[in-house]
């Protein structure tokens, strides 16, 4: 088996999930210059609620094919996470919009802990296995293996991201979002309701987060109440890598981080003479974060058009 190709495939899968989550961070940052640390918990909620909804549905005798059951679960979890995202902004960030930057950052961490603990109360602090409902036949691909599930994750992620980019680039709401991210007071002069645009940003980002959460669950076969922290931190790293505030950057950063991490982990054992195993793969993400912050804090695509007075 070709380890490189295999790790490339795995990295692409994980990377497309990071990209979806990173978009949530970067959209909020673009508009509010706020790092919404609670976004990782939104991802977790998306996964946990979907698992519960699916188990309740199948427990109550609903007889749907596996993939449709997952879709039904998403139809429950997406609206709930959207409402959560909306509420978090309303309750924790909006009252602090004119406060020093550190204040909303601290409430973000607070909200993140609250959501995590609420999840522990609801689901207990144990991993839940993600029901085995999606196709996962494997196929040979250039000397490596790729599964239906992996293909599904990557394709769905690309479709969702494409949809988001079209929304941002081509619709009135998207144009208003970009305008608000550049100049709030002039945007409001044009008739844009800033609060509405900010709420929509959280709502849309949360929907993407829920989809990503389900992908994480399906990809690893499990989900747990404290999973939001690590996945959130990785996706945040991806957003910084791509240039926070930049949508294309979030996508590129997510894919790149997934691949670096996965390929790196594949060779970590041999490189370190067996001292570090592939379970140390998380160090790659944080090495990337440190390197980017030191050498290119604006990220890969973070360069902005010169703004002339």
């Amino acid at each position: 088996m070709d380890i490189f190709i295999q790790q490339l495939i795995n990295g692409l899968v994980v990377g497309s999930i990071y990209a979806l989550i990173a978009l949530g961070y970067t959209m909020v940052y673009g508009i509010l210059q706020l790092i919404n640390f609670a976004h990782g918990e939104i991802v977790m909620m998306g996964a946990m609620i979907t698992i519960s909804a699916v188990s309740i549905l199948s427990g109550s005798g609903v007889n749907l094919p596996g993939p449709l059951l997952v879709v039904a679960g998403l139809l429950v979890s997406i609206p709930i996470t959207m409402l959560l995202g909306f509420t978090i902004e309303r309750v924790a960030y909006r009252p602090l919009r004119k406060a020093p930057r550190l204040a909303p950052l601290i409430t973000a961490i607070g909200i993140s802990i609250v959501l995590q603990q609420v999840a522990v109360l609801i689901w207990k602090n144990n991993p839940r296995s993600f029901p085995d409902l999606l196709p996962h036949a494997s196929h040979d691909f250039m000397g490596a293996v790729i599964t239906d599930l992996q293909i599904l994750i990557v394709v769905l992620a690309l479709v969702v991201m494409g949809g988001l980019l079209i929304m941002v680039e081509k619709t009135k709401l998207g144009r208003a979002m970009r305008a608000v991210s550049m100049n709030q007071s002039v945007a409001s002069l044009m008739g844009v309701n800033i609060n509405y645009v900010i709420s929509m940003t959280f709502v849309i980002g949360s929907a993407l987060g829920a989809v990503a959460g389900v992908m994480v669950g399906a990809n690893y076969g499990l989900a747990y109440p404290t999973m939001g922290f690590m996945i959130g931190l990785k996706a945040f790293t991806a957003a910084v890598l791509g240039g926070i505030g930049n949508l294309a950057g979030a996508v590129a950063g997510g894919l790149l981080l997934g691949i670096i991490e996965s390929v790196g982990a594949g060779y970590l054992g041999p490189i370190t003479g067996g001292v570090l195993g592939s379970h140390y793969q998380d160090i790659f993400a944080f090495m990337v974060l440190i390197l980017v912050l030191v050498f290119r804090p604006s990220g890969l695509l973070g360069e902005r058009v010169a703004e002339r007075a």
Binding site: R178, A179, S185, V186, S188, L189, G191, V192, E307, A309
Partner: peptide
């Protein structure tokens, strides 16, 4: 603020206030 423009009040702000990346 965002209700003024629909009432027919518009302003060209000092320093122009264009959206640079639109």
């Amino acid at each position: 603020v965002h209700h003024y423009v629909s009432r027919g009040l518009a302003m060209v702000p000092e320093g122009r206030g264009i959206f640079p990346r639109l």
